[in-house]
C-alpha cells in the first residue's frame, strides 16, 4: 500500500532521515519508535508532503513524493500532529466539516469511501458526543486530540498516520485512545502508522515495528522480537539514561 525507497532528508549537514526503505501492507498497524531526534516525525512529514527529500515514496503504486500535502490527503493518506493544533476559532463540528469537505478532491479527483455514513456517526465513534458545539479552544488536551483525529478521519483516509496519539494523556485516556485505534483498524479496516514512545502500547497493538536511530532503520520486524533485540534495547535505554 505504502512503499518508501531509499528516502533521505538532510537538514544542512545533518541527515534527519537516511536511506530509509520499508513497505506497508493494507490493513496493517505499523509502529515507529526511537529516541528523540531519530527522525520519526520527519518520516511523517516526508510521506504527507510537508517536506521533500530524495528517494521515492509510493502510495497504491503511485509516486507521491513531490506532491503537496493537500494532494496526498486527497489520495487517502491522513495524519495527526504531535501537538494538536485544531482550528481554535471554530467548534468541534466545524473542524470536522473542514476535513469532510476539503479532504476529498474535486470532480476529477480520486473517489473515496468512508466506513461511516455521516459526521454524527464519526463523532460518536471517536467519543466526542455532546461536545459537537463546543469551541475547540475550550477543550482539554484529550478532546483536542480526538478532534484532530476525527477531522483527519473525516477526510475518508485509507491510511492514517498518528504522531504520538497517546503523548501527554492520563493512563485512562491513553487506554481509551489505544482501544479506539484498534477499533479503527479492526472495525473500519484502516491501515495505521503510529509514532509512539510507550513501548508497551506499540508491542500490544502493532503488527510490525520499526526502530529508527539517527534517521536510519535500526530494526524492523515483529514487535516482540524487535523489542528484545539487544541493539534496540541499548539504543532506547542508552538514550534514556543519557
Amino acid at each position: 500500500m505504502l512503499r518508501l525507497e531509499h528516502v533521505t532528508k538532510h537538514f544542512g549537514e545533518l541527515a534527519a532521515v537516511n536511506d530509509l526503505s520499508f513497505e506497508l501492507e493494507e490493513g496493517e498497524v505499523f509502529g515507529i519508535a526511537g529516541p528523540n531526534g531519530a527522525g520519526k516525525t520527519t518520516v511523517f512529514n516526508l510521506i504527507s508532503g510537508f517536506l521533500h527529500g530524495s528517494g521515492r515514496i509510493y502510495f497504491d503504486g503511485r509516486r507521491i513524493d513531490g506532491l503537496q500535502p493537500h494532494q496526498i490527503t486527497h489520495l487517502g493518506v491522513a495524519r495527526t500532529f504531535q501537538i494538536p493544533q485544531p482550528f481554535n476559532s471554530m467548534t468541534v463540528v466545524q473542524n470536522l466539516r473542514i476535513g469532510e469537505y476539503y479532504g476529498v478532491a474535486g470532480r476529477s479527483g480520486p473517489k473515496k469511501d468512508a466506513p461511516w455514513n455521516d459526521l454524527a456517526e464519526l463523532i460518536s465513534f471517536v467519543g466526542l458526543e455532546g461536545k459537537e458545539a463546543r469551541p475547540v479552544s475550550t477543550l482539554k488536551l484529550y478532546d483536542k486530540k480526538l478532534t484532530v483525529l476525527a477531522s483527519a478521519l473525516a477526510t475518508k483516509p485509507r491510511l492514517i498516520m498518528l504522531d504520538e496519539a497517546l503523548g501527554g494523556l492520563s493512563a485512562v485516556e491513553a487506554e481509551q485512545s489505544l482501544e479506539l485505534l484498534q477499533r479503527l483498524n479492526r472495525e473500519w479496516g484502516l491501515t495505521i502508522i503510529m509514532i509512539e514512545h510507550l513501548m508497551s502500547a506499540l508491542t500490544r497493538s502493532c503488527d510490525r515495528l520499526l526502530i529508527l536511530n539517527n534517521g536510519e532503520a535500526l530494526r524492523i520486524g515483529e514487535p516482540r522480537t524487535v523489542v528484545e533485540d539487544p541493539v534496540v534495547i541499548e539504543c532506547l535505554v542508552g538514550v534514556k539514561h543519557a
Binding site: T73, A78, I98, Y102
Partner: peptide
C-alpha cells in the same frame, strides 16, 4: 488558525 493542520485536511 492552524496552517499545517488545514493542509493536512486537504486545503
Amino acid at each position: 488558525d492552524s496552517e499545517s493542520f488545514a493542509q493536512s485536511l486537504g486545503i
